[in-house]
């Protein structure tokens, strides 16, 4: 069947060779870089299509955290009377809600990436990693807006002298980095596994919710009994939440070791899940 043209096999230089199994530890980040414009356009698309044809438009970015915070204040603060470590309850819960929103949005959206984009993935090739990355960046913009709301509230409470931020606040980028990376890593891991085993979607649905209770979102670390705090220390998200509260609200339990652990955990998880993600991405179209 093959037509024989000149067979100068040795001298031919192919630009690309498609094979059943690619190198395992190739993260293909160079390719992502080549497609960086697409990352920008995806992010733009996500942001714009979020509020197109809504009356309140970008205002929706504020409404959700405000209402959630109010409900938390009511339920956990007033009814359950959980401690907020001496911090005004509205600030305490809002910091938790805004941070947790960012992580859980990254996680949830990334986890269904293959399912949500099957039509697109089936028609055109681009580094699949771009979609999770665009989720993280477009949510970062949302996070920035919501965090702005938190800061505005903070300014008021600082003015009346109820809280005093300190230098730990400068480590906010580290917190964001750890949350984004962890959200991405867990999300990609789930998305890779759910293409074949759909069961995991159900696990995801309540898993994220349960994870919230294992993270100091609605309670401070300082209130945890010694026996349980040892277990909760394994949660790489815990130091991040405590760090942010310590920096901006002046109260939190932070250790350097915990921060190093969280950052290392995030990076390792990201590398591992990228490898798995890239592996699945090559043939997921056959099983999705």
């Amino acid at each position: 069947m093959a037509i024989e043209t000149e067979s100068d096999l040795g001298s031919e230089d192919w630009d690309e060779i498609l094979e059943p199994n690619a190198a395992v530890f190739n993260l293909r980040l160079r390719e992502v870089w080549l497609y960086r414009d697409l990352l920008y356009l995806f992010t733009y698309r996500d942001i714009v299509s979020f509020y197109k044809q809504t009356i309140l438009g970008p205002l929706w970015f504020f409404i959700q955290p405000i209402f959630t915070t109010l409900v938390y204040v009511l339920v956990f603060g007033k009814i359950a009377k959980l401690s907020s470590d001496g911090i005004p309850q509205i600030l305490f819960y809002m910091s938790g809600v805004v941070l947790w929103n960012y992580f859980s949005e990254c996680f949830n959206k990334t986890a269904t990436v293959f399912r949500d984009n099957a039509a697109l993935f089936g028609k055109v090739y681009f580094p699949r990693l771009l979609i999770p990355l665009s989720i993280v960046t477009s949510n970062l913009i949302r996070f920035a807006i919501q965090f702005g709301l938190f800061l505005a509230l903070l300014v008021y409470f600082v003015a009346i002298g109820e809280v005093s931020p300190n230098a730990w606040a400068l480590l906010l980028p580290l917190s964001v980095f750890v949350m984004a990376t962890l959200g991405l890593a867990f999300g990609m891991l789930f998305s890779a596994l759910t293409t074949k085993y759909r069961d995991l979607i159900f696990l995801l649905q309540f898993g994220v919710q349960l994870l919230m209770y294992a993270t100091p979102v609605i309670y401070p670390m300082s209130q945890i009994p010694a026996g349980i705090s040892g277990v909760l220390a394994w949660n790489p998200l815990a130091p991040v939440f405590e760090l942010t509260r310590l920096g901006f609200l002046g109260s939190g339990t932070v250790s350097i070791g915990g921060l190093v652990y969280a950052a290392t955990f995030a990076v390792v998880a990201f590398l591992v899940s990228t490898v798995i993600f890239n592996r699945v991405e090559r043939t997921f179209m056959d099983s999705v």
Binding site: E12, W14, E16, I17, L18, E19, V124, R282, M285
Partner: peptide
Amino acid sequence: LLSKITAPTSGRIKTK
């Protein structure tokens, strides 16, 4: 296969 949407089960595709 050629568009890299899915990978071949065996064999190789070379492109320039």
